[in-house]
Structure formats: C-alpha cells, structure tokens
Amino acid sequence: MKAFVMESGEWKLKDMPEPLAKSEEVVVSLKAAGINRRDLGLIKRYGDNPEAMIVGSDGAGIVESVGEDVIDFAAGDEVIINPALRWYTNSEGPPVEFDILGMPDHGTFAEKITVSAEQLEKKPHYLSWEEAGSLALPALTGYRALFTKGQVKKGDTLFIPGAGSGVATFLVQFAKNIGARVIVTSRSEEKRQHAQKIGADRTIATDSDWVEEMADETIDLVIDSVGGATFNRSLDILKKGGRIVIFGATTEDTVDFNLRQFFYGQYQLFGSTMGSREELRDMLDHMESYNMRPVVDKTYSLDQAQEAFDYLASGNQFGKVVLKISE
C-alpha cells in the first residue's frame, strides 16, 4: 500500500506492507486524514532512523476487516479514529500509558491502518470524509481545553491568540454554541474576517496593543497555544481570578512571568493535552446536536503530502489541511 513516511531523516512516499488485523484489532481503509502541527515536528524526534514510520494521527474510513474478539464493528462500517491512545475516562491528567497515534505506532497517512477496535468511533453521518478525517485530534484538544479545563459557561468572554489553527476554529464554534463571547487575534485581515464568519464576536490585530484594544472587555478565559510570544500579553488582559489554559507552544517553550503579579491577581493556570475517549464521545454528541462542522481549508491527495506539509508549515491556513486518500 502507498504511505507517507519518515525514513532516514526524510519525508517520502513509499510502498509499505498491507496491515493485518490481530485479535481485537481492525483494518480501516482510509478515505481522508487531517494534518496536524504535531506531524510537522516528528521528523526531528525520529532523527535518522532508517526504519520507515508512517505518520498521521487523524483519519476516517471504512472498516475492511476485523480480527477475533471484535464485536462492536464489522466490515463496511464508516468510522473515525481516536488518536488518543489508552486514555478512556475523563481524569485530571492522562494516564502513564497515554500516547498519540502516529509515532511510535504507524499512523494514518496511508491507504490502510490497523488499530485497536477500542480506538474507533462511528463516523458522524452528516460529515464529509474530509471533515470526518480532520476532526478528532484538534476538536478533542479544543473541547477539553475549553470545557474540562477552562470551565467556560454562557456569558463568559473567551480570548484566543491566533485565529487560524484547526483547534482555534473548533474553539470559536464550541464557545459560541453555548453562548460565550469570543475574541480572537490574527496578523491577517483575511483570517480575522474568516473568524467572524464562523462566529467570533470581535477580532483584533496580533501586533496591536491588547490592553488598549480590550480596555472595555472583561476576559474570563484565555486559551493559548502560541507560547512565549503571547503568554504575558494574554496575562495582562485577563481579569483578576481569571483562567488561562495552555495546550501548545508554537513559539518559545519557556516563558518568564512575574510571580508576585500572578499570585496577587489570583490567576488560574492550566495545562491541557488532547483528551479522553469519554470527552471525545461528549464532543461528538455536542457537534451533532449543533450540526457543527470542521473548517477545512485545503485538501490534497496522498501523492501531494509534501506540498500539504509545506502549506501547513507556512501558517497561511485557516482551519484544517486534509489528505484525501481515496474516493
């Protein structure tokens, strides 16, 4: 089968062996797979390893075959893949067994994949393959950050630095669904306009003075994945006793901040990563109840995977970049 892999420090398209289902496993013939920023950084972690590793965490497709002791799925079922491995119930943090699909296990940028049956959920019937294949990782990440950690509620004002990421597009829609007010930033006027189209109440330029721009706002919750470039700026506009949730760091991984200012302000800081199967199922129920759809920016074929990676790395996308693997 055709797959997009890391091998000897390079990305390449390569023929890989057809997967087989062992006991409690399922082979899925993939239709689409979403690219995440996590995928871009894996080659640094994998290094010069000569063994080909299939990347990709998100995907949707049709069950081709099932192994022994699989009772919940059968050939022909339309499914999405839960990339959060071995995290079943909502908890304060992930269990030690938790990992993310797509290294060290083979991932979804291939024509087929073998996964444990417990990692499958029925595909939401109203979504296209491209929408379903780009869903799980960013939507689950946003859902846990917003609801489990951020405890957002109707009437809160949510601030999101950066409007264009897949997670940000889910955050905007989730928050608006429950009646929160949403403010986002972007350097791009086009992205700010897109954010308003999916529900953002207010958009501001990233390089503006946030304190001055939002002097008339009360920010209850910040959800930030930018990191060092925005952390202190976000803290400056957060109300006393407000909450800030961090789920990524696309800029600096480390940040200095004033502890005295922090504890006098009685701010609340939370880390968040992905989420449990319980939260994934709650998220799917939420989406279906609001007929909510992922925002898909561009779709590429598997043969164009390197081009798709380059586009995501450019930061020009608004929403998800997706590989269409088969018709």
Results as ranks from 00 to 15, higher is better:
residue 233 R to V: 02
residue 233 R to W: 08
residue 233 R to I: 06
residue 233 R to T: 14
residue 233 R to Q: 15
residue 233 R to F: 06
residue 234 S to H: 04
residue 235 L to P: 02
residue 235 L to W: 02
residue 235 L to I: 06
residue 235 L to V: 01
residue 236 D to G: 07
residue 236 D to H: 03
residue 236 D to T: 05
residue 238 L to P: 01
residue 238 L to C: 00
residue 238 L to Q: 07
residue 238 L to G: 06
residue 239 K to P: 08
residue 239 K to V: 05
residue 239 K to A: 14
residue 241 G to D: 03
residue 241 G to C: 00
residue 241 G to A: 07
residue 241 G to M: 08
residue 242 G to S: 06
residue 243 R to D: 10
residue 244 I to F: 09
residue 245 V to W: 04
residue 245 V to I: 05
residue 246 I to Y: 09
residue 246 I to P: 07
residue 247 F to E: 04
residue 247 F to T: 08
residue 247 F to P: 00
residue 248 G to K: 00
residue 248 G to I: 00
residue 248 G to W: 00
residue 248 G to N: 01
residue 248 G to H: 03
residue 249 A to I: 06
residue 249 A to N: 12
residue 250 T to E: 08
residue 250 T to R: 09
residue 251 T to D: 14
residue 251 T to Y: 10
residue 251 T to C: 08
residue 251 T to K: 12
residue 252 E to Y: 08
residue 252 E to A: 13
residue 252 E to Q: 15
residue 253 D to H: 13
residue 253 D to A: 14
residue 254 T to G: 03
residue 254 T to I: 09
residue 254 T to N: 14
residue 255 V to M: 09
residue 256 D to N: 14
residue 257 F to N: 12
residue 258 N to P: 10
residue 259 L to Y: 06
residue 259 L to I: 07
residue 261 Q to A: 11
residue 261 Q to R: 13
residue 263 F to M: 12
residue 263 F to A: 03
residue 263 F to D: 03
residue 264 Y to W: 12
residue 264 Y to L: 13
residue 264 Y to N: 14
residue 264 Y to M: 13
residue 264 Y to P: 05
residue 265 G to M: 03
residue 266 Q to A: 12
residue 266 Q to S: 11
residue 266 Q to T: 12
residue 267 Y to M: 14
residue 267 Y to G: 01
residue 268 Q to F: 02
residue 269 L to E: 07
residue 269 L to I: 10
residue 270 F to L: 14
residue 270 F to Q: 08
residue 270 F to T: 00
residue 270 F to W: 03
residue 271 G to D: 04
residue 271 G to M: 02
residue 271 G to V: 02
residue 271 G to P: 09
residue 272 S to Y: 07
residue 273 T to C: 00
residue 273 T to S: 11
residue 273 T to F: 00
residue 273 T to A: 05
